[in-house]
């Protein structure tokens, strides 16, 4: 359907050849659609298993905290969600960069698909953070440095989604929002450190450090399991949504019509 585009560099010889060939095929929407379809069930079941193990470990196996009792157990959701919200933003910016430079359509699809999932993770982090704050601080919201940074991250996600949906032409929307994501990625560390700095200036050191090095192994293992579960969950969702997006974008092509009518 398409001829070789500029930027899809001539394939280098020797070792990297196979890898290049793989990426080259991955860039084709149809191949991506089919590969993603095969991967989704595996990722989905992996998510379920890890989630079950992580939740069991976190809610029953891990001992109660001597200071906070059972309230701390929300970190098994809160901390993985917070890590994922940042990870997804970086992934989104990376995909955006690839789409911008090499004009690979699938990268645009991935970047666009990342945004709502990442925003959900940021929102989940804020919700669990404020729920945890009620027994700890006595209020649902304090201007804690981490929570504030997370709130700003959510704003960055919402800005990205708003820009992407405001521009009509798909390709322009993808390229413009990729530039925004890159600007955001440069700014995230600056924002993070400025908020940290602002917080120490106004309120003294943080009351409680989540996931500090002093965490016990009984807590660390479920936390890592949950982190892995969240990661798999993210990739499952990403592929499911990306498949839909690919179908929509390629609606005019022959293979999509074939796929849709054959089902």
């Amino acid at each position: 359907m398409k001829r070789v585009q500029r930027g899809e560099v001539a394939i280098p010889t020797s070792i990297t050849r196979r890898l290049w060939a793989f990426f080259h095929r991955l860039a084709s929407p149809r191949y991506f659609y089919e590969l993603a379809g095969k991967l989704v069930p595996w990722l989905g079941w992996g998510t379920v298993l890890l989630l079950a193990a992580g939740l069991y470990g976190g809610l029953w196996f891990a001992p109660a905290d001597y200071q906070q009792g059972d309230a701390y157990r929300i970190i098994f959701i809160h901390v993985p969600a917070a890590w994922m919200s940042l990870f997804v933003y970086v992934l989104m910016a990376g995909a955006g960069f690839i789409g911008l430079v090499w004009r690979i359509k699938i990268a645009d699809v991935v970047a666009k698909t990342c945004a709502p999932i990442g925003a959900s993770f940021a929102f989940l982090t804020l919700c669990t953070g404020s729920l945890w704050g009620k027994p700890m601080w006595g209020t649902y919201w304090v201007w804690d440095a981490r929570l504030t940074s997370e709130l700003i991250l959510l704003f960055l996600y919402l800005g990205y989604i708003a820009l992407e949906s405001a521009i009509e032409d798909r390709r322009t929307a993808a390229r413009a929002s990729s530039v925004l994501a890159l600007v955001g990625v440069v700014n995230i560390p600056i924002i993070h450190y400025s908020v940290d700095w602002w917080h120490t200036l106004h309120q003294g050191p943080t009351v409680f450090k989540l996931g500090g090095p002093s965490i016990s192994l009984d807590m660390l293992v479920p936390l890592l399991l949950m982190t892995l579960a969240f990661k798999l969950f993210f990739f499952t969702m990403l592929l499911v949504r990306a498949r839909t997006e690919v179908l929509e974008r390629e609606a005019n092509s022959a293979w999509v019509r074939e796929t849709v009518t054959s089902q």
Binding site: I152, A162, N187, I190, I191, S194
Partner: peptide
């Protein structure tokens, strides 16, 4: 404003 204000935060803080 939605795009730009979050990016202004460090300037405001400092």
């Amino acid at each position: 404003s939605l795009l730009v204000l979050p990016l202004y935060i460090p300037v405001l803080i400092f």
